[in-house]
Amino acid sequence: MSDLLDAHDVLLADLDGTLYRGRGAVPGAVDAVTGAARRGTRTVYVTNNASRRPVDVAGHLAELGFPATEQDVMTSSQAAAAMLAEQLPVGSPVLVVGTEALAEEVIGVGLTVTTDPDGAVAVVQGHSPDTGWRALADATVAVRAGAVWVACNIDPTLPTERGPLPGNGSMVAVVRTASGREPQVAGKPAPRLLRDALRRSGARSGLVVGDRLDTDIEGGNAVDLPTLLVFTGVSGPAEVLAAPPALRPTYLAADLAALTRPAAELAPAARPGWQAQPGDDGTLVLSGDGAGSPEPALDALRALAAVHWAGKGGEVRVQPDGPAAERAVNELGLPTGADAGTGGSTTVASA
């Protein structure tokens, strides 16, 4: 029986929350990626993080055991620099709000870096933990004067070992508020980064893999590629049910081990052992026992998603009918009380 890897010649994989968390690899991720490589499916590592050089990202991945070289890494800083180069004459001065890694990408496409906001014809903005008020003020001056403005990404938060902290999108919001202008966006969910990654790979059938609905999945949908959401990072089952069409994944899986499973088993659809149907009071009713399923809770979610997405979608309460259904709903953390919601999710709310 064919599996998900048989249908794809490249994986466009997110990093944090998908392949690693903090300093360690997500359990099973290294085996999954190296196994895919042995079967001829390359992985291109696609990250919105613009603060590190591709060679440093590749080095980190290799240390964890992933088959990665500099040419396998695509960052939002590369995509942002390419966007600027298409719009500006060679040698144009660009104000860089970000790290040296971002500045090097700008220089690498034939542009120059300036610290003078009055002389800048463009501003590129990427995450740096050292960004302060003066840098944001200079960016505002240049943007307000008409400079081309490209944001590497607009992620509102950045996952850290201390929990979510302000990401590049929060800094972009400062300049947006002060200047009254909107940036062009290079990173996910905007299509440029994934398109560049797919073009570099030379592949014909890509699969976007990630842990966030509002960047990875929305980005994959924006470039009309199938998507696999893994529950090893940010987005959870309640968010999946509530997701609007642009954020809905093609496949759902616990982790990357699912790459060797048949695609039909991972897609939201009716699943053996479970029955999902709309309730009279606007709820979803889950019944059955998931008998024979290797992962009863996730199969319950796939069944629920198929029914809910075929209707109006949106936030919903799930009413379990029977002890097995109650166990599955509890394991998934789905809302069952009067206060339906996504648990304060930013991945759905921000969309």
Rank of each mutant, 00 (worst) to 15 (best):
G288K: 10
A242P: 13
D321H: 14
Q184D: 13
V285K: 00
Y45L: 02
G322K: 08
T114V: 05
G341Y: 05
F66C: 01
G273F: 03
E70F: 01
D14T: 01
R134W: 12
G108H: 11
A306Q: 11
S205N: 14
N168Y: 05
V141L: 12
G22D: 01
G119F: 00
A145Q: 15
H60K: 14
T250L: 01
A85I: 09
V26P: 01
R181E: 13
P278N: 04
E326L: 03
Q184Y: 01
K188S: 13
A62D: 15
A151K: 06
D31K: 12
V174Q: 04
M171E: 00
P323A: 14
P164M: 02
W309V: 00
G65L: 03
P262M: 13
P249D: 05
T260V: 10
P278S: 06
L12V: 14
A36D: 11
A276S: 14
E105P: 04
T99W: 15
A257Q: 11
V109H: 09
S201E: 09
A300V: 07
R261H: 14
N48M: 06
P268I: 08
Q125R: 02
A190K: 15
R271Y: 01
P320N: 05
V318W: 00
D211F: 07
V174E: 00
G206N: 11
A324E: 14
P67L: 11
A203K: 11
R162Y: 09
L332W: 15
E265P: 03
T43Q: 03
D9A: 09
T43M: 09
P166S: 02
P89K: 05
A190G: 06
L158I: 04
A291Y: 06
T75Y: 03
E100W: 00
A222K: 12
G65M: 14
V223F: 12
G91I: 00
V30C: 13
L111N: 12
G24L: 13
A242Q: 03
A325F: 12
P129W: 02
S128C: 00
T232A: 14
T160P: 11
V143I: 08
D16Y: 15
E315D: 15
V10Q: 10
A68E: 11
L111F: 05
L19V: 04
L241R: 07
R302A: 01
E86T: 12
V90M: 07
A81M: 08
R181Y: 02
G290N: 13
L247W: 08
E104H: 11
P156D: 01
L256R: 08
L256V: 02
L12E: 10
I107N: 08
P272R: 06
D72H: 00
A305G: 12
A80F: 14
L241N: 11
T215Q: 10
D72P: 08
G24D: 14
A238N: 07
V33H: 03
V185W: 09
S76P: 00
P244Q: 04
Q87N: 02
R327H: 06
R21Y: 00
C152H: 15
S345Q: 02
L207Q: 10
H8S: 12
S287W: 14
R248I: 05
G167Y: 13
Q184V: 10
